[in-house]
């Protein structure tokens, strides 16, 4: 693959809470190359969003992050506001999950778009407006000129999500973190937006990190997939590897639990029993042991490290898979 854009090493995110410390992300290490699309999948609370927020320097007050993140040769984890503000919104953008809560309710959408261009590209209002409308047309936002001075509550959910995407595209970023950009939308709009993002990535050569709990979305869009469980990466590999020879029992269970159109409608979707562990009291061994159908004695006592199963295919499991 081509040059590395972002290299994240041993990223840990912790939250101080009343009765202790939540280990949201533990020793996360991965690379993003230029122009590729990487999916981070895992269930709610597996640390997908928090790891990205940590990289962007957007953790809430009670969160701390350690480790090392190098973006285009510059170390950016916990960098100063000044350093981050030059990167954020310009070359590294984030599309947030909830477009209703994510847009300032008392500011016209046009102003919310223009302020990014005024800040980063020093455009005047008129030029910023022209450029913003151009981008709104790219994301297929209907009638951008007429809606430019509307407020978020006057738009539909799909339109708001397009605004969020447009916000991320204004300065032609090199890296976009998309945090479940389509979960709040109905399935047809979701398909449209995913299709659009796929085209976009080819078009402007942006690297996209797609956070999702939907393996279908990941398969559709991504080149590589990182599977997270309880704050740790449990498997990573190319889309083909993940789907055709998953090495971690959690990934296998996730795949089995994905609804399929060609499945027998009378058959139940196999669920993953139990629930993820409490991130305040993680077990000593593998965090998935309790829910794992292939668990061995050893899994309780020690934690498997990530190991190379195939070329560029890592998994953290003691069990050797046959295929």
């Amino acid at each position: 693959m081509s040059a590395t854009l972002l290299k994240c090493t041993d990223l840990c995110v912790r939250f101080a809470v009343k009765d202790g410390c939540v280990h949201a992300v533990e020793n996360l290490t991965f690379e993003i190359h230029r122009g590729e699309c990487v999916g981070i999948v895992g269930e709610s609370g597996s640390g997908k969003t928090q790891s990205v927020l940590a990289i962007m320097g957007l953790l809430p007050r009670n969160g701390t992050s350690t480790g090392n993140v190098v973006y285009k040769g510059q170390s950016i984890l916990n960098a100063s506001r000044q350093v981050m503000n030059k990167i954020r919104g310009e070359s590294m953008c984030m599309i947030f999950q909830d477009a209703m809560a994510g847009l300032t309710p008392f500011m016209q959408i046009g102003d919310q778009l223009c302020e990014v261009l005024i800040e980063h590209q020093g455009l005047n209002r008129a030029d910023a407006r022209d450029r913003a409308i151009e981008v709104l047309e790219i994301v297929q936002f209907p009638q951008p000129k007429r809606r430019f001075s509307m407020y978020p509550h006057e738009l539909s959910g799909g339109m708001r999500q397009r605004i969020m995407i447009a916000l991320a595209l204004l300065c032609r970023p090199q890296l976009i973190f998309a945090d479940e950009p389509t979960t709040a939308l109905d399935i047809t709009i979701q398909a449209q937006i995913l299709e659009f993002m796929k085209g976009l990535q080819k078009h402007i050569e942006t690297s996209i990190v797609m956070i999702t709990h939907d393996l279908g979305v990941a398969a559709n869009l991504c080149d590589r997939i990182i599977v997270m469980y309880a704050g740790r990466m449990v498997e990573s590999g190319s889309v083909k590897d993940i789907f055709f020879r998953p090495q971690h029992p959690y990934t296998q269970a996730l795949l089995r639990a994905t609804p399929r159109l060609d499945a027998d409608p009378d058959e139940d979707i196999p669920l993953i029993p139990g629930r993820p562990p409490n991130l305040q009291e993680l077990p000593v061994g593998c965090a998935f042991t309790e829910r794992c159908d292939q668990a061995q004695k050893r899994c309780m006592a020690e934690r498997p490290e990530l190991s190379q199963k195939f070329d560029d295919h890592l998994a953290a499991c003691f069990v050797e898979q046959t295929k």
Binding site: L58, P60, C93, F96, G102, L103, E115, V116
Partner: peptide, 23 residues
């Protein structure tokens, strides 16, 4: 200050002063 839209404003790379005054 703890709303999602303020986080969006920060993600835009706006200076702290602008974030506070506008958002």
């Amino acid at each position: 200050i703890n709303t999602d839209y303020v986080r969006t404003a920060r993600a835009k790379g706006l200076g702290e002063f602008k974030v506070i005054v506008h958002h």
